[in-house]
């Protein structure tokens, strides 16, 4: 099966020569459909930049990102937004909930953006699982960090995107809840054959993935190929 997500030679430089910062320095990777990949690295290693590039939120200095056979760097802003809405669900480290909408409205926003019907049963399941029933009508300002994070996760799952890009999705949850939430992510991904790329600095969480990519100083140091041959590839391909 083809890779659903393919990045090649991604570079992101800030500044000019003497004081140049290389946030990403030639990163290439492939993610298969249905795969769960974790990206691990210390803070400042470029993992968030990489994730933003994969989702088309940031423009690389050079290199390309191809999603489902389409190079997103070549799309216009308008097209990219529509493409993103249909294919990618983001879970941000700082949630990025729309402050003027309540939790429920935030969750269904990506669905409404595309003018689609909300799969109520599915959504209720997610809400139930994430224990958000009581908080649905709260504005993000009235939610704790953990609750906001759960709303952000619900938002990413509700529209059943093909790819979920998660940036420290459990950063604000205690370790027990983190496990639960991650498992929910995994379960959902299995069910809808979704691809999950997750950033974390926590090795324990990273290990839950099919494959773990380690990134340091803007470069991938391990995890691009080896596991793909054994674990990930096997279940994905056979």
């Amino acid at each position: 099966m083809n890779a659903i997500l393919k990045a090649s030679g991604l570079k992101k430089y800030y500044g000019t020569e003497p004081n140049i910062t290389r946030a990403l320095d030639g990163v290439s990777l492939e993610v298969m459909q249905g795969e769960f990949v974790s990206i691990i690295g210390t803070s400042g290693s470029g993992k968030s930049t990489l994730l933003n590039m994969l989702g088309g939120l940031d423009v690389p200095t050079s290199g390309s990102v191809v999603i489902r056979g389409k190079e997103i760097g070549k799309m216009k802003d308008e097209q990219l937004c529509v493409f993103r809405r249909r294919n990618i669900g983001f879970i941000f480290q700082d949630y990025n909930l729309v402050p003027i909408l309540n939790a429920y409205q935030n969750m269904i926003l990506p669905i409404e953006l595309d003018g689609n019907q909300v799969d109520k049963e599915h959504l209720n399941e997610i809400i139930h699982f994430l224990h958000l029933e009581e908080k649905l009508s709260n504005l993000p300002g009235g939610l704790s960090g953990g609750q906001q994070q759960r709303v952000a996760i619900a938002r990413a799952l509700a529209s059943k995107p093909a790819i979920i890009l998660a940036d420290e999705p459990t950063g604000n949850l205690d370790s027990k809840t983190s496990q639960d939430v991650l498992n929910l992510l995994k379960v959902s991904c299995r069910q809808f054959h979704q691809t999950l790329v997750m950033i974390t600095h926590n090795p324990e969480i990273a290990l839950m993935a099919d494959r773990m990519i380690r990134i340091e100083d803007g470069k991938i140091i391990s995890g691009v190929k080896d596991k793909m041959m054994t674990g990930g590839m096997r279940h994905a391909e056979k």
């Binding site: 056979g69 529509v82 249909r86 595309d114 809808f192 054959h193």
Partner: peptide, 27 residues
């Protein structure tokens, strides 16, 4: 076909149908 090109970056009704079809197809 393994790879079906769809116009999922366009703001059209058809694109939505295509996305859904593809999802179902893959599943």
């Amino acid at each position: 076909k393994e790879y079906i090109e769809i116009e999922d970056e366009k703001e059209l009704l058809m694109a939505k149908v295509e996305v859904k079809l593809l999802q179902m197809y893959k599943l």
